[in-house]
Amino acid sequence: MCSCNCEQPLVPSIVEVIDIVDETPDVRSFYVKCSEGGVPYSVQPGQCSMLSLPAGEGMFSCTWQEGNEYQHYAIKKVGLLTEELHSIEIGQKLGIRGPYGNGFPVEACKGKDMLFIAGGIGLAPLRSFIKYCFKHRDDYGKIDILYGSRSYADLCFKDELFNLWPQEKNTQVYVTIDNAEPEWDGHVGFVPSYLEELNPNPNGKIAVTCGPPIMIKFVLQSLEKMGYIDDQVITTLEMRMKCGIGKCGRCNVGSQYICVDGPVFTRTQLRQLPQEW
């Protein structure tokens, strides 16, 4: 039976937290599945779910869905709900509804080289796409991952970043932190400037970026400078959401609702929208 509650899209179904992993001092990963087994619905890379505790609901990008086994959400502590989420323990029941949004164009990107550019918690939504590429490794060309955070401690998914992903075929991972640290011998500096330093050739490449709005804005500028045309650049946006189904009116950018028409937009689509994100 379908447990996604599609007849009543605003009413959550219930899942259970089966594991919690600390990623950084303020980012935690939650593994969830239905108590009777399986996932509540199938999520495509880049799509989101509305997770809830009794205290409130919040929209989170699904960082990975492992078959019918579990969904993974990496969540940064920023407000009331996320603070509560960070205080729960394994076994906690959560409300969940979704999947929301368009997701990444995984099919259209097949055969291309991929360049993922993320800052901070912005790696969370990209992770689903990155893992999808690795799962279907032969469908994609070279994969470059450029990721930056404020400090080493703030880097999410360290095991994947430093151990797993670099071992993947034809893959390069570049990591940077904002300020120098004694133990850090890697690159220091902001993501957009590191990107320009690396200057990846735009030929046959799709760039996917997510991070704080200010980083996205500079990354988009840098990509343009390096010769990426608008259709080659994809980003995923975030706005405050309540319903997730394009009714409550709150997440509009122009006539588009981030919850249903986004969160993933190409640069071409983004140019059609007012600068209000």
Partner: peptide
Amino acid sequence: MYSIEQGKQVFSIPDT
């Protein structure tokens, strides 16, 4: 929209 019940680790939606 719907009722909720909470307890230690519990979250349920008895009625819509």
